[in-house]
Design a protein around this nucleic acid. Structure first.
Lengths: 131, 131
DNA sequence: CTTATTATTGCAACACAGTCGCAATAGTAT
DNA sequence: ATACTATTGCGACTGTGTTGCAATAATAAG
């Protein structure tokens, strides 16, 4: 079978399915560590990152950068299809560590000539459960 | 002389003044590394971080987290006084590394019970100079 | 000016995130 | 069953940001 140009088909493995279902089950964005702890099987840190990066490339998952500089991953909910914009904010609770989506979409106008490739909006503080 | 409770007066040193004037001279937010390279004197990495953290505590400088998870520091321009909100976006050029302020202020409504402590809005891409 | 106090510094060590090369393993298609 | 190659685990590595500790130096007080 011929693949277009950079012929790379994704394979289904124990790791990928488990990580995917972990993300599906999660109510919030997860760090690699949270994912690792949640898995039924042992998966290497490097592998988890590679799987998550692949998911991001494929547009199944989006990456959020916390105010702590760390990466969090969450399934794309409403932007699976053509409109793959992640222009919404996230909220990270500094107490319980939960990272939630804030539904409101934001439109930011850039100065002329600027090209946007990535959007990362995050508010951190204390969530209602922890307040 | 008595200081209110945790009696800590800030001292003026070669490092602090140099770092401050470097930030003043900068047209964009800087990483610790950019600052270190720009200084006339050698200052330890740890010291730079400590100075910057002190500046942040004092509200003279604000901290921006890049989409790469790294910290960038910039002088507060319009929010020196009482209204110390940093609710504006930044733009980081993935080519030249420059981190600029986007002037527009943003207001985000949080769900009930949520308390915001920090705001970090960043768009990354390619700036006009590099496009 | 001299002295005492303590904020600040440099150094080394550390914890952690995220990445990468390589050889071994295991999906997938034929 | 076999070949092809995506994926994995392991180890090593880079870089960020922090911290403990002893030495240094800024500031206030005498």
């Amino acid at each position: 079978m011929q693949h277009s140009r950079n012929s790379m088909a994704r394979r289904k493995t124990e790791s990928t399915t488990q990580i995917l279902s972990t993300l599906k089950a999660a109510s919030s964005a997860m760090s690699h560590q949270m994912i690792q702890e949640e898995l039924d099987i042992e998966v290497d840190r490097a592998t988890i990152y590679r799987v998550l990066n692949r998911f991001c490339e494929d547009g199944m998952v989006h990456r959020v950068i916390g105010e702590n500089g760390k990466q969090y991953f969450a399934l794309c909910e409403g932007c699976e299809k053509e409109n793959h914009s992640h222009n919404h904010f996230h909220f990270r609770c500094k107490n319980c560590g939960k990272v939630e989506c804030l539904s409101r979409e934001i439109e930011i106008k850039l100065p002329a000539g600027y090209v946007a490739q990535n959007f990362n909006g995050l508010i951190s503080g204390v969530c209602a459960q922890c307040a």
